[in-house]
Amino acid sequence: MSQQSLPNKPLRSVEYKIVLLGESSVGKSSILERLQNNTFNEDKSSTIGAAFISKKIPINENKDLINLQIWDTAGQERFHNLTPLYYRNANCAIIVFDLINLDSFKKAEYWIDQLNNYIEEQLIGIEIILVGNKCDLINEGEECSYINIINEFISNHKEIKRYLQTSAKENINISKLFQDIIDNIDDEMFHPIEEENSKNLIDLKFKKNSYNSTSCQC
């Protein structure tokens, strides 16, 4: 879509997969709504199972095209067994917690453990980004009440690439969050668009074989 509205056709593109993890109601869907429509909706309904959005972002004066494919997962614990289905192909995991809810931070720790196990087992790389959301609820000049716990955790977990405080409500740091991701996409991941069709076919075949429709772990 954005492709057509711009004068030149991009020469290279990349599919970059992101998954959002974190406790229910920390604001995962709200962050994505900010990214997608730049809106905030107090009454946004909870996510059941998972939701998917994709966004095309041209960069380098439209020479390159990034296609972000993002899975938004459900926060409730009973759906956790399903989550590997969504981080299986991810390049990047954004782990979200609520800055005024310590329990939600414990859940973030849980997700980072899960991901570490998965990364170790599969010998793959998933970039891990930690996000403390709802920073608008912290009074100006004050800090999150459990900032020490967060800092200690981060210093003990070198696999966390970045940590950001955001607010989906007040639109704080949301575009920075995704800009950083985009800026850090490995140049080698891009492939020329002319070859895309033939290349896609090969990729898809490969994926088909590596995919097992009964792989749900529940």
Partner: peptide, 23 residues
């Protein structure tokens, strides 16, 4: 989404299939 060449191709990316079906 999967095939810009316009050919019908049933060999779709799994994430895309999942997302189209959930929407």
């Amino acid at each position: 989404i999967c095939d810009s060449s316009g050919e019908i191709n049933f060999d779709f990316d799994v994430d895309i299939v999942h997302s189209v079906l959930s929407k």
